[in-house]
Design a binder for these strands. Structure first.
Length: 194
DNA sequence: GTTATGATTTACT
DNA sequence: GTAAATCATAACG
């Protein structure tokens, strides 16, 4: 299991890249779900208008971002979709990594059922809103430390072929829209957009 | 209290 | 390609 201290390092962009290929473990409904992280995006508290905490902007919603790294930040978007983030950096430096896609390794049946699919499809767990539905992550999982047996990250065993691209859905962020802070596994079909 | 909107997805035309 | 779904949150009065 990656220790909490790992997420308290300073460079959220590097951490977002390194998380691709790592495993997300979630115990739920009596089963252990395991999924490989295939796509991430970095959001940095300074010089990044796309970040919820840009300009030290602090609200009740993004409060977990201002806490110490190694915890979750889950919020509802468009009234429909839950977004799962991992807070990084030390307390007061509000960085976070959005998990955008996962590749199922264990517990697929539960994910298929969650998504009302007949069989496993790439979009069962690709896409930030889709993967939270598949894994049953909601705001009930907001602001919890990722060091329990029920929710944590395991380091990767193989180095994936990582592609860097611009982030998705942040047209309001001006020039920061162009930052290549989205990372994905070039060899995985479980990616939201190439 | 009221209003506008979004780290999206899906179903249409 | 365009639009609807849908609601907590943030901004404003």
């Amino acid at each position: 299991m990656l220790p909490i201290s790992y997420f308290q390092q300073d460079d959220v962009v590097r951490l977002a890249r390194e998380l691709v290929g790592c495993l997300l473990v979630r115990k739920w409904q009596g089963q252990e779900l395991q999924l490989k992280i295939t796509e991430t995006e970095a959001y940095r508290h300074y010089n990044d208008l796309a970040c919820h905490a840009a300009n030290s902007h602090r609200t009740p919603r993004n409060a977990p971002m201002f806490e110490s790294g190694g915890r979750s930040y889950v919020y509802l978007c468009y009234g429909i979709h839950h977004m799962f983030n991992i807070v990084t950096n030390v307390k007061g430096k509000a960085d976070a990594i959005l998990i955008r896609a996962l590749e199922p390794l264990q517990g697929e049946e539960i994910m298929i059922r969650q998504r009302n699919h007949q069989r496993l499809q790439t979009n069962t767990t690709a896409g930030p809103g889709n993967l939270t539905q598949a894994t049953g992550i909601t705001r009930a999982q907001n602001n919890i430390l990722l060091n329990s047996s029920s929710l944590h990250i395991i380091d990767k065993t193989e180095q994936p072929d990582i592609e860097a691209r611009t982030r998705i859905g942040i047209g309001y962020a001006g020039e920061d829209t162009q930052l290549p802070w989205r990372f994905y596994d070039n060899n995985s079909p479980y990616v939201s957009k190439r």
